[in-house]
Design a protein around this nucleic acid. Structure first.
Lengths: 345, 345
DNA sequence: CTGAAAGCGCTTACAG
DNA sequence: CTGAAAGCGCTTACAG
């Protein structure tokens, strides 16, 4: 005998009453409820999730799908832990558990998500690393699974999403550089099909245009999102006949490798090449010269995602009545010295 | 109508036969099986996990409990993504899904795990960030939930565990420093109750003893496991009347802050103070001077954990017949210049 | 080789 | 206020 039956037998009442007492239903004698709660705590009883899910049709779990690959492993993952901390905190208020669902490199993300969804492992989903064309969106819509995307896609966007304010970053970075006399500005974006690369590139081109500048196609540099990628960006720039005087990076880790490549060539970041990084990381201030970059709260982003997701879930939508969230997450400039140089006009 | 019933109705056969076909049971007509598999693929059918779990008593999911706090958020988390990648790959071979269970800072880790276990959310558990006294071990033993610990505890250790080879690192680091003439060697450990701090401290003291050295208690410096902690380590060392000539760090991120503090004081790492870091990170080689540290494969560690865990699970133990795994994970020296100085004797 | 039926642990109308 | 019973979606002995 186990589970609720054991508890009921131990108390010599029916399992129905035990269930009602535990679930805070009215119409339970307060003394009975107290006995049940005490016994449950003493015996460490918690309802079997499979039984409960089967009956209720919900799991009380929210899935956060992340993808592990060589790059995220080495880099962006301190991104996720902060977001996860915010998510768990916000979901806990509604007794929802966050389960992180890591998709193996060996598996197609779409197939992975399809399996998760079909098995009804979670009630709602947060997806990340959105691609330019992301079939997961269609899958989730078709399955009527509430979801929010961390990142935009190239497709229609009636669904809820939050994305970093790549436009704001591109405009602020370009404005700073132009004010210091730069006209030859390059941008470094990922060499994958992740959508943020396209978003950032377009925002960058647009920012240049506002200052009457056009972009040299060779100044759009695709590289791995890692310190090694930064090193190859350095290679690419050094190999150019007509070099840019400034570069804007979409990943902060790129800065580390770029600094190294410049140092090897006897050049000084911030003096021979102006550099603006992306998100502030632990190493940003410790690089020499300090990297100019942008700050954000990962934890608040996690809370924002949780609230945006809850608004799409029928059971919680009335508490978060904003409708599908479309939000550009602001990032705040952190001035360093990596873009301090001034170009003579 | 949904789930297996819908599939059965669509094919005009019984749900029992559908189930047997999908689960690869013998005694199913091969043509029937093919029809079932085709229809399942076409309709995107996957068995509802709650129904399956309830009937089978297993969930096919493995939980990896991690704790999010300010420090892990900022630092060690690129640790986890690599381990997760290894875990997912190894578990996928047995059609087991990894779900990462992040315990909120607002919740007691023991209570969190108890809830997870009682609800039977997963079949087996990997715990991390083991404390000196870790009641989660007793909980898992009492509940007869297969588990493996990433990290030792101060208590009995009949259970399966894998831990980093702190002893090997301490001995190799101390041997290098002693060979260069250092006698005044400090160690930096976390200021929390996480067990690795005690393990590393003891290993360090033992390593010194092998060279006939004793440790000055003030040379055992407790600090936050972050770049900020490294900065405070610098403060502590600079404030000492009789300063150490070398320091061994238990967290690589500490090096960044320590470098900065030394630079601010006009001192040069590797020249005025020898530094040995712990795990090699993306920044290790890019620090100047390059940090002497230790290399390991996170992915292999994840695979090791998966195999160690599977060996404790009745259904898989015959495939991994090693018995409870007790393993010190080796780390390989990466020579930098941060400990290059030689002390005149 | 297939179907009918039991039962996994819950929650919840329903009857009293 | 409580108990008895149905049923969520599966899997699996059992019967044929």
């Amino acid at each position: 005998m186990k589970g609720i039956k054991r508890l009921a037998q131990h108390l010599d009442i029916s399992i129905g009453t035990v269930s009602r007492a535990l679930n805070g239903k009215p119409d339970v004698n307060e003394e009975t409820r107290k006995r049940v709660l005490d016994a449950a705590a003493k015996l460490g009883y918690a309802p079997n999730q499979a039984g409960r899910s089967l009956r209720r049709g919900t799991t009380n779990a929210i899935g956060f799908m992340i993808e592990t690959n060589e790059e995220t492993e080495a880099n962006s993952d301190n991104f996720f832990l902060g977001v996860i901390a915010g998510l768990t905190g916000a979901l806990l208020r509604h007794n929802l558990d966050l389960v992180v669902l890591p998709c193996s490199v060996n598996e197609d993300p779409h197939d992975y998500l399809q399996r998760i969804v079909a098995r009804r492992l979670v009630d709602a989903v947060i997806i990340s690393a959105t691609q330019r064309e992301d079939r997961r969106i269609d899958l989730l819509k078709a399955a009527h699974v509430p979801f929010i995307a961390l990142g935009r896609t190239g497709g229609p966007d009636e669904h809820a999403w939050i994305d970093l304010d790549f436009e704001g970053v591109a405009h602020e970075a370009v404005a700073r550089l132009v004010a210091r006399g730069h006209k030859q500005i390059a941008v470094a974006i990922p060499d994958t099909d992740i959508n943020l690369g396209y978003v950032f590139r377009d925002a960058f081109i647009d920012a240049l245009a506002r200052h009457g500048l056009t972009v040299d196609p060779s100044f759009i540099i695709r590289a791995r999102s890692s310190e090694h990628g930064g090193y190859t960006i350095g290679n690419a720039i050094l190999a150019m006949e007509d070099r840019p005087t400034a570069v804007v990076l979409v990943y902060e880790m790129m800065a580390i490798g770029l600094y190294r490549r410049l140092n090897e060539a006897g050049l000084t970041p911030g003096q021979d090449l102006a550099i603006v990084g992306f998100r502030e990381g632990p190493q940003s201030q410790f690089l020499s010269p300090a990297l100019t970059c942008f700050r954000m709260s990962l934890r608040d982003l996690g809370i924002g995602l949780a609230e945006g997701l809850l608004a799409t879930m029928p059971d919680y939508a009335d508490l978060y009545p904003a409708g599908p969230m479309h939000k550009l997450w602001p990032m705040e400039l952190v001035e360093g010295e990596s873009d301090g140089m001034v170009i003579d006009r």
